[in-house]
Computed example of a mutant assay.
Amino acid sequence: MNRARALWERVPAPAVDLVLVIAAAVDVWLNLLDDTRLGVALATLGCAALAFRRRFPLGVFLLTLPIALTQPVAVAPLAALFTLAERSRNRPLLGVCVALVAVANSTPWPLAGLTEVGRTMTLVTFVYSLATAAAPVLIAQLLQARRDLARRLVEIEEAREHERVLHAQAVLARERAQLAREMHDVVSHQVSLIAVQAGAMQVAAKDLDAKEAARTIRSLSVTTLDELRTMVTLLRASGGRATELTPQPTLADLHELVESSGTHAQLTGELPTTVGTPAQRALYRTVQEALTNVRKHAPGATARVELWQDGDDVGVTVANTPPTRPSLPLPGSQHGLVGLRERADILRGTLEAGPTTEGGYRVRLRIPLGAD
């Protein structure tokens, strides 16, 4: 059955229409009861109109309706009614069309012979014609429902496939988030401890080889920690647009950071170009975290960002005035300053943070100039 249907669908539509027009014309030629000029003209018009049944189904049906008046069971009006029912979802309209065909078939032609046919015969003919006209409508509606069902099944399958993809993405996101938590809570913490211990060993060691080995361990630990934090960020992004790697910030980016901080902040001071990359990153993150806290917890306050050098140490001080209006309760992780202190410890520096006597807040980072 499917093979026959596939072969039928390969037949061009114009060829099918041509065959239908010829079949309707042969049917009229063999069975037409009204051979007058008017009857022949109406029959010819109705048969020719079948070529346009796909574009104008209702109009073609109305043009074929006179054939049903002059012929008991005609191919043309039934074919036009089938096409209309296959394309229309207006069931009241289809019911009216079926009734019109039944009335036309049961009406004696010419009308002068109406008294010669009894009421009973007319009623029987009407019922028979009604059933005959309803058959192509029911078949067409069945085909329409079949197409709708097939389309619905395709939509359901696509929805299920989309749901499977979303479920797989959700599972992957959960696994990545769990892995990110493990790396952040366990691995990053352990590497931080290694870096701190290596720094302490570097300071306390007397042997030059031991001091150099401790410096190497601390340097590798710092690099590993930065890579771990980058990996945690990528894992938490779960494949979103935020997974693209971006250059790490340096002191050259401080001006843009201060200008785009959303606070009234001023940057002063300079640092030598010999400041190492890890130290520049620590200074940048300190300013970033401090300005973020000013924006969140001290609305309306002004801030001053000062870069300074004190002997062999460099640092930054971020101080803000008291807020001019109440702050909104915003959620926070409460880990920003903790992370800054860990970064400072790794670089053998110190971080001081606390309120000022004027009612503001100050964050001060000090790092050895040669920290790397």
Score class of each variant (00 low, 15 high):
P323G: 01
H264E: 14
Q144R: 14
Q202C: 08
L65Q: 06
V338T: 10
L365K: 00
T250E: 00
R304N: 12
V101T: 07
D207I: 08
R5K: 12
I156N: 04
H162C: 00
L142F: 11
A99D: 01
R236N: 15
L142H: 10
P323M: 04
T233A: 14
M1E: 01
T44Q: 00
L62V: 12
V187R: 04
V60Q: 06
L267C: 08
S106T: 09
A353P: 12
L153R: 15
N90T: 04
T83Y: 01
R362N: 12
H184C: 07
A134D: 04
E182L: 09
D345R: 00
R281I: 05
Q288T: 11
R176N: 15
W109P: 08
G339T: 11
Q197N: 13
E86Q: 09
A15L: 15
T350E: 10
L347R: 03
A102F: 10
L166R: 15
N320H: 08
A80F: 00
L142M: 11
S219N: 08
A80T: 05
R343M: 15
L18Y: 02
T64Q: 04
L84I: 10
L254Q: 00
Y128I: 09
D207W: 06
T122F: 06
A133W: 03
P136N: 03
L283Y: 05
A298F: 15
T243I: 12
L123G: 10
